[in-house]
Design a protein around this nucleic acid. Structure first.
Lengths: 260, 260
DNA sequence: CGGTATTTTGAGTATCGTCAAGGCCAGTGG
DNA sequence: CCACTGGCCTTGACGATACTCAAAATACCG
């Protein structure tokens, strides 16, 4: 919520750490670096406001950003999370339809918009990256829709935790493995979770503790839960297959590997 | 659900009817026409299956398509609608993450995928169109999320109707104006609406009739409702402003114009 | 250690899901 | 022409779930 004035800026911005960008030709990465400024934000800082013309394109380097729509009464409604490698900002079209705020401490690469667009037009590879990025973002939004369409809060919460495990795994040490159990650090406060899942804080609390009472999760801290058996969580969401089971299997593999 | 074998095909495919494509250079439209096949689907026909590699890129010409995820138990979960000008299919990346089915009778232009991609790479204007298309699709998905996050079914239903009024207005005569009142033709069956809004058919029915009892809508047919005062519907959804109020205002203007 | 914000718990009520029955419409076959 | 059938929509009754309001407990921060 604070202003972003105390942002530390840093001209050096090496994109090769991001898997998607590593494959870009050297020349393109050089060109990107030339128009890039690195920025850091503290948890809670606002990065972009709804309705404003954002004159930069951002790529998340580390940390988690939340996209949110502002409501007339001043509250905010989370409509998605951004993690390392995700892009935000409106290419070819200025207006932001949601605001962006740091959910955790975060670093982003900011590209001057017109320069980025120009580079985009003469660099098919970069353009392709943008298109693929938009498509996975779209898939994620649809996964959210399925989770939100779950009639029961327990199911929505289970879906949310699983989404953190799968889509956002390996990001920012949100997911860690300890003694064959998966620990999830939830990067959102209860009010944010409640808005995101379409319910109230009380219901979130009750649902999480209901899962705990049934032995599906352990609540170590309000924002840190441990999942013993992912399969049981999957059972909670009822029907949908949550997109890929592939990424779930990767997670299970990770558990196997880390525990042995 | 039927197979798409009885599809009528037609080589002629004039894109200039679609607003977004009218602005493309003559040469690009010609090139597109060369790799295009026009197809027609009857309501209920399947156009693409989940998991399969769709070897074409589709652009909707008329009618409404629904995107849906298949659930293990065989049921389908609607995750979005496609209307005239919308694209579907996975550019640069084959696998479909949802199936596509005609919600109403519909016509689409199908482009051979590799040809389309090649054209894309050497036609920045077309590419820009694709990116913009993806971004509005993303915005729509986020609007859906906000609607789904509404804790009350009445609110979700009101949001759904408003979304039809705004995002899908002017499409396929879904929205018509009669004596200063707005008529909405709902292109989904009750089971589909229930899945989309995360509830059951009975609740949809009750919520819609509750809105009718309060005088907010009139139910002319199960799939045709009349909204007297849009502002009242907006009040039902509670807080969120549903993205643009601009498109709502355009609709109100339309009412004014048509009634006088 | 105190003060504040966040999270949790509790009790009562509204809403929604579930099961079961009935109505409406279109297509079918006598 | 009419009974029959099946799909879809609606209605009713009841139990489960979630929302509301209020208060307590816990975590967080200096």
């Amino acid at each position: 919520m604070r202003n972003s004035e105390d942002t530390t800026q840093n001209a050096k911005c090496d994109l090769s750490e991001l898997p998607d960008f590593r494959d870009l030709p050297e020349s393109v990465r050089k060109a990107l670096q030339a128009i890039c400024r690195r920025r850091s934000y503290g948890a809670g800082q606002t990065i972009a406001e709804t309705g404003t013309h954002l004159e930069t394109i951002g790529i998340v380097r580390n940390g988690i950003l939340k996209m949110q729509k502002s409501l007339p009464d001043g509250r905010q409604h989370v409509v998605g999370l951004l993690v390392a490698g995700d892009m935000f900002g409106r290419v070819f079209d200025g207006r932001m339809h949601f605001s962006v705020e740091a959910a955790t401490n975060a670093g982003v690469c900011a590209f001057e918009r017109t320069g980025f667009e120009a580079l985009l037009l003469r660099t098919p590879k970069l353009d392709r990256l943008l298109v693929l990025n938009l498509m996975t973002e779209l898939d994620r939004a649809r996964d959210w829709m399925i989770i939100l369409a779950n009639p029961k809060i327990r199911g929505r919460l289970a879906g949310f935790l699983l989404l953190l495990c799968t889509r956002y795994q390996t990001i920012d040490r949100l997911i860690t493995v300890k003694d064959r159990a998966i620990r999830i650090r939830i990067p959102l406060s209860r009010p944010d979770m409640a808005h995101l899942l379409g319910t109230r804080v009380e219901s979130i609390s009750r649902a999480l503790h209901a899962l705990a009472d049934d032995g599906l999760v352990k609540i170590l801290r309000p924002d840190l839960v441990e999942v013993a058996e992912i399969a049981a969580l999957v059972g909670e969401i009822g029907e949908p297959d949550l997109g890929d089971t592939a990424s779930l299997e990767r997670l299970v593999d990770l558990v196997q590997k880390t525990s042995e």
